[in-house]
Design a protein around this nucleic acid. Sequence first.
DNA 1: ATGGCCAATATGATTGGA
Length: 261
Amino acid sequence: MRIATWNVNSIKQRVENAVAWLSATQPDVVCMQETKCLDNAFPREAFEDLGYNIAVHGQKAFNGVAILSKLPLEDVKLGLPGDDEDDHARFMEATVSTPSGAVRVATIYLPNGNPANTDKYTYKISWMDRLFTYAHERLKLEEPLVLAGDFNVIPTPADVHNPELWTTDALFLPHTRSKFRALTYLGLTDAIRAVTEEPNVYTFWDYQAGAWQKNNGIRIDHLLLSPAAADRLTGAGIDKHVRAWEKPSDHVPVWVELRDK
DNA sequence: ATGGCCAATATGATTGGA
């Protein structure tokens, strides 16, 4: 089965591109981020017409996540545990029951955290700590688990075009990368890095300053696999061509292919 | 030519993004 993640940067602005991409690549599950609309404004019909079940967790104007799945979505849980005061729509998990067993999927929109000397960065780090706790708990179940989304973390200098320009950025600070490493050291596999060691493999190109034309990108959209999911990994990739379409998101889809048991 | 964007909001300037 194919599981993908895509920060769409407003689903209402991206319906045409999303329908084209879904029709062409036929992913079984899609984790979306930055849907940027209330649940009742999500353009469900366009995707239901393609055979997808949809679970949404949105809010007005900002953030917002969704999961689309050809199989029914079960045990849908909204919000990352650990802070009842956090009202940002940035996390949702669900399971899909495949003939080979249940697969748990989480869609993640990790806080940006800039500027790094403000409470926005404090929020980012506390969110990462909560994600660590969540992952630690879920990994105890020894299930196939896929954490998919916009992590707003550049893991290494090989994942950014000009690392020297990012040294004080919340996406690349040593403390940020340390928290991301701690998460992966729980036993999660970064799917793209499991299939390629090539540098300059990106998932985001800024709209500004000709970043796309100059391949001035960063790799911040990730699929992290539990051991039971990584055991089934047969492929992973980045649908880079989508960035060249009309009216693109600044992020492109990233996907994994998991074999049946 | 050494700068250049995009999306949402009771919009026409501000905020957030990365």
